[in-house]
């Protein structure tokens, strides 16, 4: 039998190669998500929403009904779908700018209302699509287009601890975790648990994925992995932060 690419069943083969840059972490997060959708057998129930920013390039990524929304507004659009169609599995896919800056109010309030949706947020420490500006997640001292002399924590604060913030707001029944593209299998487990949480109707579910942006970081493969595996975890702790029924550590 001829060898074929081993893509998740839920991926739309006709739109591959996908539109993300060489080495972009989105491909890995979406691979984990695709496999999770396959394993949970929910493809026909999924409604997939994506943001503005690089995440919008996934508008035709899956063989799932999908909607590309505005910057930061994916969470409310997907919330609207879920409230109208509780039988659907609703996924809001966004970047760190969309989730922690322009759309932070929506993320916070959806968590507070314990919306039965799954938000997946890709953290790559910068605004990718607009050309690499400082993001809420930019590391201290990190140079970007709008922090050309490095992020100054005196004036620009520290990286947003997204999952920790969401966990603090979310109700009992919510699932919150942080994974990384450096460990795709574990990331998939978290995404699967998040989706399962929605399927079980327990509450809001949120997974942040640490990811790479070789284009705007101007890194080669080696430096990209170094940044994801060594620099980012200094500020962003990988692991499950809130799971239903489990006492918080």
């Amino acid at each position: 039998m001829a060898v074929v690419p081993n893509m998740p069943k839920s991926w739309r083969v006709e739109t591959k190669p996908h539109k993300f840059c060489p080495g972009c972490g989105h491909g890995l997060v979406l691979k984990a998500l695709g496999e999770a959708i396959d394993e949970l057998e929910i493809q026909e129930r999924v409604v997939f929403g994506c943001d503005i920013g690089c995440s919008l390039l996934s508008w035709d990524f899956f063989n799932c009904d999908s909607v590309q929304t505005h910057h930061g507004r994916t969470t409310p659009v997907v919330t609207g779908v879920k409230r109208a169609r509780p039988d659907r599995i609703c996924i809001a896919y966004m970047g760190d700018g969309g989730g922690y800056a322009i759309g932070a109010q929506h993320l916070v309030n959806s968590a507070a209302r314990n919306e039965r949706i799954t938000a997946i947020l890709v953290n790559n420490c910068n605004y990718g699509m607009t050309g690499g500006q400082m993001a809420p997640t930019t590391l201290p001292g990190m140079k970007t287009q709008t922090s050309p002399y490095g992020r100054d924590t005196e004036t620009m604060g520290y990286p947003t601890q997204g999952p920790e913030m969401v966990a603090a707001i979310a109700r009992e029944g919510a699932y919150v975790a942080r994974g990384t593209v450096a460990n795709v299998r574990r990331l998939k487990r978290y995404i699967k648990s998040a989706l399962q949480n929605q399927i079980d109707g327990k509450g809001f579910s949120f997974v942040e994925a640490l990811s790479g942006c070789p284009t705007n970081w101007s890194t080669n493969a080696q430096k990209t992995w170094e940044f994801i595996e060594k620099e980012m975890p200094q500020y962003f702790k990988v692991g499950e932060i809130k799971t239903p029924g489990k006492k918080e550590e």
């Binding site: 591959k16 190669p17 080495g23 992995w225």
Partner: peptide
């Protein structure tokens, strides 16, 4: 396709963007 002793390695050049993440890993 490239055969090694233990594997058949297939690279879909029509999908490969040359990022090199695999080389490092």
């Amino acid at each position: 396709q490239v055969e090694t002793t233990k594997s058949v390695f297939t690279i879909f050049t029509g999908l490969c963007k040359g990022c090199g993440l695999c080389i490092e890993k």
